[in-house]
């Protein structure tokens, strides 16, 4: 288990407050459409158990109307606070007003909402995509001393994650005159497309000679790219460095095998920070920023084998 310092302090804080309050918190989750979503739910449940919080968990099965129903029932039950991981951005105003009238604080996690009135919720806790890009870029620049011809596999054109990760990455390498992106194409976040695109790029870049690193917007594309590099007769991880974002088990295995170099974890552990904020708010501290960014840590080959074992078992 990996916890940042913020999280650690959160636990200490909560230990103090739990005894006094024994909170009841409602959590309206999107559903269980992906592995990441499942770990997110599990992490929140585990965190609540650890803190002695009575968690009312609702699975909306990807439907907003189910979520709204769940929130209304939380209000009717008079919970102390509500956490929403919204399915969609719009349509939240009426139910959030009801919560406000009942004086129940609401925390939004993961995806954004649009209500136009910031006072309807306490804060939003979300991954900071551009920070992920910056972390990946910084690691690459540190490793290569700023000398690097980079190939980029973008996510789906127009996706926020793709735009922001590219932005953050470019911000950092912009400071290094000898580092630049020589090829950039979309791999649509999938392994198949990542492999296909990487194959062509390697051909266009003289068989990959001179390319120093592959930067992929997610692990799946990176895994496809790694296969393409291997089939081109090069060694991923040394001939061409590979850095990406997500932290899926397969990628940890690739790192353990020496085929990949680094990944920034997209943290599913949003429960801790959410509970922290709620406890702080209920404790009387109303001075809370409207957006709290969380960014997972960067993992490298050093810990990959151990992390892979841990994650495979999950």
């Amino acid at each position: 288990m990996k916890l940042s310092t913020i999280l650690a302090t959160g636990i200490t804080l909560s230990c103090l407050s739990v005894n006094a309050l024994a909170l009841t918190i409602g959590f309206a989750q999107v559903g269980s459409e992906s592995g990441w979503r499942t770990s997110f739910s599990e992490s929140v449940k585990a965190e609540a158990k650890k803190r002695g919080i009575d968690l009312k968990f609702s699975d909306a099965q990807q439907k907003q109307e189910n979520q709204i129903k769940a929130v209304r029932s939380f209000i009717a039950q008079g919970v102390d606070a509500i956490i929403i991981a919204p399915v969609v951005e719009t349509g939240w105003k009426p139910v959030l007003r009801e919560a406000k009238r009942a004086r129940i604080p609401v925390v939004i996690v993961d995806r954004n909402i649009q209500v136009g009135d910031d006072s309807l919720f306490v804060t939003r806790i979300a991954s900071d995509f551009s920070e992920e890009g910056r972390k990946a870029a910084q690691w690459l620049m540190d490793t290569t001393q700023g000398n690097c011809k980079i190939v980029e596999l973008q996510g789906t054109v127009g996706a926020t994650a793709a735009i922001d990760r590219a932005q953050g990455f470019n911000d950092v390498i912009g400071k290094y005159p000898n580092a630049n992106i020589v090829r950039s194409q979309t791999g649509e976040f999938t392994r198949t497309k990542g492999k296909e695109v990487m194959e062509s790029i390697l051909k266009a870049e003289n068989g990959g000679k001179g390319v120093c690193a592959l930067w992929a917007h997610n692990d799946e594309m990176a895994l496809g790219g790694i296969q393409a590099i291997k089939e081109a007769g090069l060694k991923p991880g040394s001939d061409i460095l590979v850095v990406s974002v997500d932290g899926v088990p397969d990628y940890f295995k690739a790192m353990a095998d020496g085929d990949a170099n680094a990944t920034v974890e997209l943290s599913p552990h949003l429960g801790g920070p959410a509970f922290d904020v709620i406890e702080k708010y209920l404790g009387g501290d109303k001075n809370i920023p409207k957006l709290i960014s969380t960014t997972g840590d960067l993992f490298t080959q050093d810990t990959a084998a151990a992390e892979y074992q841990k994650r495979r078992l999950q």
Binding site: T192, K195, L223, D250
Partner: peptide
């Protein structure tokens, strides 16, 4: 072919 190519089966994206 698609599955063997990436040595993995991706129900969401294979053949999308």
């Amino acid at each position: 072919i698609a599955t063997a190519d990436i040595q993995g089966a991706d129900g969401n994206n294979t053949g999308l």
